[in-house]
């Protein structure tokens, strides 16, 4: 059933391409969400359901919501309302919807059929992921936490307003 993998990959590539060519940030975000969902499905078909779940929870979930909120918050006021109406034109949401429907169809197929693993890949569950993350790759996890610290301190410094002359 390698075809499932290729369909999901094609959706990911198309969605990413369309995302890059959109002029409006919100439209681009819609395609980005579809692209991330498709990538999650790719992970699933390759035998990594845990990573697929993380991809959806963290990227399509948390990070995208953050993006959408930031974009929306930057667009307040009367002009934004007119823009909102503009955004609800079907031509804008049909594209992402079609791609999403393809993905849903694939998910339904995967869930209703028993053996849908691709390329003979073994399924790697959360247990195994945790064991390697907190076993041999423990240092990597710690380094990633330092990476977040660096990003956080940098964002804090650049993002804060200047105090009055001390």
């Amino acid at each position: 059933m390698n075809i499932l993998f290729y369909v999901a990959s094609a959706v990911a590539i198309i969605a990413t391409f369309l995302m890059l060519t959109r002029m409006n940030a919100v439209h681009a975000l819609l395609y980005l969400i579809v692209s991330l969902l498709a990538v999650a499905l790719v992970f699933y078909t390759l035998g990594a359901p845990f990573v697929a779940a993380l991809e959806i929870i963290i990227y399509a979930g948390a990070i995208m919501v953050l993006f959408v909120f930031v974009v929306m918050m930057l667009n307040l006021g009367r002009a934004a309302e007119a823009q909102e109406r503009e955004w609800q034109r079907p031509s804008l949401w049909v594209g992402p919807s079609v791609l999403a429907v393809v993905l849903i169809a694939e998910v339904i197929y995967v869930l209703t059929h028993a053996d849908t693993r691709m390329f003979g890949a073994e399924v790697v569950g959360p247990h195994q992921v945790a064991q390697s993350l907190f076993g041999p790759y423990l240092i990597g996890v710690e380094l990633a936490s330092m990476l977040l610290l660096g990003g956080l301190v940098g964002a804090f410094h650049l993002g804060r307003r200047l105090e009055e002359k001390r």
């Binding site: 790759y137 990597g140 380094l143 990476l147 660096g150 990003g151 301190v153 940098g154 650049l158």
Partner: peptide
Amino acid sequence: VSFFLGLELLSVALYAL
């Protein structure tokens, strides 16, 4: 893995610096 993490640690700190 450590190659990439090391590189990103360096880069992210340098963006802000």
